[in-house]
Amino acid sequence: MTSTAAPDETVVVVAVFTAAPGQLDALRSALVEAIPAVHEEEGCLLYAIHDAPDDQIYMLEKWTSAALLDAHGSGPAVARLQELTAGLTAGPTQVLRLSPIPAGTAEQGLL
């Protein structure tokens, strides 16, 4: 993944996991198991999952910098997540790396 964010700018990630047929509950459990290790990583401000239609789970992430997000991507927590979710998804996880566009109030206009 490449980032469009400046080195000192927060980075938001949206990852979409699509469950293999009959595997939604197992996928949800695997992600829940993997999350605590990520929460301990430097730079992790948000790492949360949400159910979505069509047997999908959306993961919303916020990192203090692109560099720390990159470190996360090649670290042991992601390796463990991949191990836990192996065989539970219908295809590759879709990952979007986003840069904030401030609008409105600081509390409501930025994630």
Rank of each mutant, 00 (worst) to 15 (best):
residue 111 L to V: 14
residue 52 A to P: 00
residue 111 L to D: 10
residue 41 E to S: 01
residue 59 M to L: 15
residue 78 V to N: 06
residue 4 T to K: 12
residue 50 H to Y: 15
residue 83 E to G: 10
residue 10 T to R: 08
residue 64 T to W: 07
residue 71 A to P: 05
residue 110 L to G: 05
residue 29 S to Y: 02
residue 105 T to F: 04
residue 4 T to H: 13
residue 101 I to S: 08
residue 110 L to K: 12
residue 78 V to H: 08
residue 39 H to M: 12
residue 67 A to S: 15
residue 88 L to H: 06
residue 40 E to H: 10
residue 14 V to P: 02
residue 60 L to G: 10
residue 13 V to M: 14
residue 104 G to S: 01
residue 35 I to V: 12
residue 48 A to W: 14
residue 21 P to N: 03
residue 73 G to Q: 13
residue 1 M to Q: 13
residue 109 G to A: 04
residue 46 L to M: 14
residue 63 W to L: 06
residue 16 V to H: 03
residue 91 G to Q: 04
residue 56 Q to A: 06
residue 34 A to P: 07
residue 46 L to R: 14
residue 36 P to E: 11
residue 46 L to I: 04
residue 80 R to E: 10
residue 37 A to Y: 07
residue 87 G to E: 02
residue 58 Y to T: 03
residue 51 D to C: 01
residue 66 A to M: 07
residue 15 A to C: 00
residue 109 G to I: 03
residue 24 L to T: 06
residue 98 L to C: 15
residue 71 A to W: 06
residue 11 V to Y: 05
residue 84 L to Y: 04
residue 10 T to G: 07
residue 104 G to N: 02
residue 30 A to D: 01
residue 82 Q to R: 15
residue 40 E to P: 03
residue 84 L to D: 03
residue 47 Y to L: 01
residue 81 L to K: 01
residue 48 A to S: 15
residue 24 L to M: 02
residue 85 T to Y: 00
residue 24 L to K: 09
residue 48 A to H: 15
residue 25 D to K: 09
residue 22 G to C: 10
residue 83 E to H: 09
residue 50 H to C: 12
residue 74 S to E: 15
residue 46 L to G: 03
residue 42 E to S: 12
residue 58 Y to D: 03
residue 38 V to E: 00
residue 78 V to L: 13
residue 70 D to C: 04
residue 61 E to M: 11
residue 23 Q to S: 11
residue 19 A to P: 05
residue 18 T to W: 01
residue 39 H to C: 13
residue 8 D to N: 13
residue 99 S to G: 14
residue 93 T to S: 03
residue 54 D to W: 00
residue 78 V to M: 09
residue 72 H to G: 01
residue 21 P to S: 09
residue 46 L to H: 11
residue 58 Y to V: 13
residue 12 V to E: 00
residue 2 T to D: 15
residue 92 P to L: 13
residue 78 V to P: 00
residue 12 V to A: 12
residue 99 S to L: 08
residue 61 E to D: 11
residue 20 A to Y: 00
residue 49 I to Y: 02
residue 21 P to L: 10
residue 3 S to M: 03
residue 105 T to W: 08
residue 20 A to G: 04
residue 51 D to G: 11
residue 89 T to W: 00
residue 56 Q to H: 04
residue 13 V to W: 03
residue 82 Q to S: 11
residue 60 L to W: 03
residue 73 G to M: 11
residue 77 A to V: 09
residue 89 T to F: 07
residue 95 V to P: 05
residue 9 E to T: 15
residue 60 L to F: 15
